[in-house]
């Protein structure tokens, strides 16, 4: 598990990052926490000849809670999400999800930006960000642009970010209503067998709106618009839950792996979503 030789860069600002990217094209990669990229390099499955470490780049580690939105710098760690008291108040689902990622040691290094940018369908934050309708800020040679999380993921490890762009921040509209992040995994540190992110807004006794996204059940995170719609206007009774689950099952496309065969994953996805909705509804 020894990577091939590579050049290591540790620039201080984004301009320097972009110029290295421009110079070396797809032979260069940026690294945030390194918990996905470094193992891939050690397995020699990722050939990165120029590795750009972002940890000294200014302005990527802030958490700002505004009137309408939360802005999280790409280099904010999962541990920082968990430990941020105001964030736990305004967007508690972030903390609930972050606590289910990997283990404490990894969470001190692993970043939110790396988690969403890598395009690994096993990562938890992409589905969560789709549920929250977050947008990712990327900066490249042509300047800055925003890409909706729901439009970002194209296939496993393939995203709407161009090779010469860097994901710098995530903005999340202030979440409303009840929430739940429900995840089944085989053990600590594992990717989800199935995971569901749910935000649900209650109006009187009825569900006003619901947002649902699933993790590790397809080659991308799966935003399940129809599942959310199936809950809207209902009292989130058993029929509504079944309708939401059925809609979700239409959207996912799991594959068999060591966690189990497709039938099992679909069954668990249904159970997990049902539990997530029930818990979110109880908090709405």
């Amino acid at each position: 598990m020894i990577p091939a030789a590579f050049e290591y860069y540790r620039p201080k600002d984004m301009a320097a990052v972009l110029s290295i990217l421009e110079e070396h094209g797809d032979e260069a990669r940026v690294m945030a926490g390194g918990h996905s990229l470094i193992p891939m390099m050690k397995l020699r499955m990722a050939d990165v000849q120029h590795l750009i470490d972002l940890q000294d780049v200014d302005g990527l580690s802030g958490i700002e809670i505004g009137a309408d939105a939360i802005r999280i710098g790409a280099m904010v760690t999962q541990a920082a999400i968990i430990d941020h008291p105001d964030l736990a108040q305004t967007a508690p689902i972030l903390r609930e999800a972050a606590l289910q990622i990997a283990d404490p040691q990894v969470r001190y290094m692993g970043t939110v930006g790396g988690n969403v940018a890598n395009g690994d369908p096993g990562n938890d934050m992409p589905g969560l960000m789709q549920c929250l309708d977050a947008a990712f800020t990327v900066v490249g040679p042509d300047g800055e642009r925003e890409i909706a999380a729901r439009d970002f993921y194209e296939a496993a490890y393939m995203t709407a970010r161009e090779d010469q762009e860097v994901l710098t921040a995530i903005s999340i509209p202030l979440p409303k209503g009840g929430y739940a992040y429900e995840k089944q995994k085989r053990k600590i540190g594992d990717y989800a067998t199935a995971a569901a992110a749910v935000q649900i807004v209650k109006d009187g006794a009825a569900c006003a709106s619901a947002s649902i996204a699933m993790t590790n059940l397809s080659d991308t995170p799966v935003y399940c618009e129809a599942a959310g719609a199936a809950l809207a206007g209902t009292s989130v009774d058993n029929a509504a839950l079944s309708a939401a689950v059925a809609a979700m099952l239409d959207d996912i496309d799991p594959t068999e792996d060591n966690r189990g065969p497709v039938a099992f994953k679909k069954h668990v996805a249904g159970v997990i979503l049902r539990r997530a909705i029930t818990r979110a509804w109880s908090r709405a």
């Binding site: 085989r186 067998t193 189990g260 099992f264 668990v268």
Partner: peptide
């Protein structure tokens, strides 16, 4: 007896 094999047992016994 990992999750999916236990699930399979329950499934084959008609418990789902």
């Amino acid at each position: 007896h990992d999750h999916w094999r236990i699930w399979k047992t329950a499934n084959e016994l008609g418990l789902h």
